[in-house]
């Protein structure tokens, strides 16, 4: 067993875990945060994307012990109570989701995209930056639109730098 301490969505916890526990398993099974999904288990599809110390990482091939001491943000930590994060609101407004399975990863990637690329995102940039997130339902058209307007809204709300 190995001891791991993580701050997840603002809450610090320490657990003894099997050292081969993946970060996504830690989040889903130890913390019951099931919003982070496993779509491919090989870092291809991006359904498991979370923020580790502010950067988007895929949690399905990351050992929990490897990020010991880190601050993690999952999809459950993005909204402030009932107040949606602007990127979440944009996905709903522009119909950027259908089955919802890739959506948490898409939104976490999109928020990170804004952190790295700014709030004025053109379609080409968004499409290139989504290379690591696969959606089978939407054909991406409305995801691209949602991220464009979500980024813009983050700029207006001042949440881009958070």
């Amino acid at each position: 067993m190995a001891s791991v301490t993580l701050t997840v969505n603002g809450k610090t916890i320490t657990r003894d875990i099997d050292p081969r526990t993946l970060l996504v398993e830690f989040l889903r099974e130890h913390m019951r945060l099931t919003g982070t999904h496993v779509g491919c288990d090989t870092t291809q599809c991006g359904c498991c994307t979370v923020h580790v110390d502010g950067k988007a990482l895929k949690s399905c091939t990351l050992l929990a012990v490897a990020v010991d001491g880190s601050t993690i943000m999952t999809i459950e930590g993005l909204a402030k109570g009932e107040d949606l994060h602007p990127m979440q609101a944009a996905f709903r407004e522009y119909h950027g989701l259908q089955c919802g399975f890739c959506t948490p990863g898409m939104i976490m990637s999109a928020v990170d995209m804004v952190r790295r690329k700014g709030t004025d995102l053109d379609d080409k940039t968004i499409r290139e930056e989504l290379e690591g997130n696969i959606c089978r339902c939407t054909g991406y058209h409305n995801i691209v639109k949602a991220i464009h307007y979500g980024a813009e809204a983050m700029g207006k709300a001042g949440t881009a730098a958070e």
Binding site: L33, T34, G35, T36, H37, T74, I75, E76, L78, A79, L84, Q88, F91, R92, L97, G100, F101, T103, P104, I107
Partner: peptide, 11 residues
């Protein structure tokens, strides 16, 4: 959508 965008879907 609310449950899906907040990670509260139940798969």
């Amino acid at each position: 959508d609310f449950r899906f965008i907040t990670g509260k879907g139940q798969y």
